[in-house]
Nucleic acid binder design. Structure first.
Length: 267
DNA sequence: ATGGTAGACCTTCTA
């Protein structure tokens, strides 16, 4: 089973290139972030024509996440639990009804810039809500894949120029601690399971020639619970997508899982 | 060098 995650930075602004990528990469499941449209404006039919079931949690202008799957989707949850006053569309989760099911979440974690504002407080509070919800998911002993733009640079090795990010919300000790706390609940970072080299970035800013100078960071992840991690077969970061016409500033990360559940889980 | 670009959209916010 092939699961992709991609922050597309407006699905409608670059629909032709996104559809081209889907036709080529053929993911079974895709998590999109920053669709930047309400549910009614999502190009649902274009993806249905490629064979996908479509679930969205949209928002006007900002944010918005989607789940696409060639397998049926059930038990769809829109919005991260824990704060009824939070109206930002940053979380959608569903059970992918494959022969070996996987619960998949598409996550767009708050950016948190600039420091010293309520935006950074919101980021940390959102991270804590995600940790609590993820902890709850793990009690169900399902294969879980938390996929998306986590807006955190976990270690200096996850940036070409870490010193350029020391005053940025993505590289603050509090952000990195929150990411570790989430991971240490019992998730494997697919990148660490795979064999991609150091310097595998997932984001390059549009500004200051970041792409030309390869000033990238790794902030898009697929975190796998034990039952999913044991099915890990490979990971591929689609760097070439940054060179498409009208590219997103993020590229897709694609993870392949064994379609069968691990034998130990059946005992 | 404190810039630069991109997207949605009402003049500015978010990233």
């Amino acid at each position: 089973m092939r699961i992709a995650t991609w922050n597309v930075n407006s699905v409608n602004a670059r629909l032709p290139t996104v559809l081209d990528w889907f036709s080529e990469a053929q993911p079974d499941v895709a998590c999109l972030q920053e669709i930047k449209c309400v549910d009614e404006k999502f190009p649902r039919e274009a993806f249905e024509d490629l064979g996908y079931n479509v679930e969205t949690h949209g928002q006007k202008t900002y944010n918005g996440v989607a789940l696409l799957s060639k397998f049926p989707l059930s038990d769809v949850r829109r919005g991260l639990p824990g704060d009824d006053s939070d109206d930002q569309a940053r979380y959608i989760e569903a059970l992918v009804e494959a022969p070996a099911p996987v619960r998949v979440a598409s996550i767009y974690l708050p950016n948190g810039n600039p420091l010293g504002t309520e935006k950074f407080d919101y980021k940390l509070a959102w991270f804590e809500r995600l940790r609590l919800h993820a902890s709850d998911l793990l009690t169900h002993e399902e294969a879980v894949a938390l996929c998306g733009d986590f807006n955190v640079i976990p270690t200096p090795e996850d940036a070409k120029n870490p010193e350029a990010w020391v005053t940025d919300a993505l590289f603050q000790p509090e952000s990195r601690e929150a990411f570790r706390a989430l991971k240490w609940l019992g998730f494997a970072d697919s990148h660490e399971l795979g064999d991609e080299p150091a310097g595998t970035w997932t984001f390059w800013d549009y500004q200051a020639g970041a792409w030309r100078r390869d000033h990238g960071i790794r902030i898009d992840f697929a975190l796998l619970s034990a039952l999913a991690a044991d099915r890990f077969r490979g990971i591929e970061t689609h760097r070439d997508a940054r060179d498409m016409e009208k590219p997103s500033d993020h590229v897709p990360v694609v993870v392949d899982l064994d379609p069968e559940p691990p034998a130990w889980s059946m005992r």
